[in-house]
Amino acid sequence: MSEDEKQGGTGGRRPLVQEWPLWEVFIRSKQGLDHKHCGSLHATDAKQAIQMARDVYTRRNEGVSIWVVPSNAITASDPGEREAFVDPMADKIFRHPTFYELPDEVKHM
């Protein structure tokens, strides 16, 4: 196992080439209901993310309205019983390595 693999999800590894950012997709299945989280996808910007969400997550008429949110814009609460580590309140909801913005000069990390 390499050092990288040991680091797993907590490391700020970046793919070799720049991967498209991750977006969270929320769908309102019908008028009168809340938007509900239904998954994620990769897209370069919001417009494209909306288009792709339509194709990916509403192939069977699942929705009347779509929200997309950059995954790294979501702030999550702390899961209740955390003892060993107290993560700061602003911690991010998912442990995706792509959260970490590196300068362009840094190609591999």
Binding site: G8, G9, P15, L16, E19, R95, H96, P97, T98
Partner: peptide, 8 residues
């Protein structure tokens, strides 16, 4: 991906 590895 929620487990900490990117799709790429």
């Amino acid at each position: 991906e929620t487990l900490g590895q990117s799709r790429d």
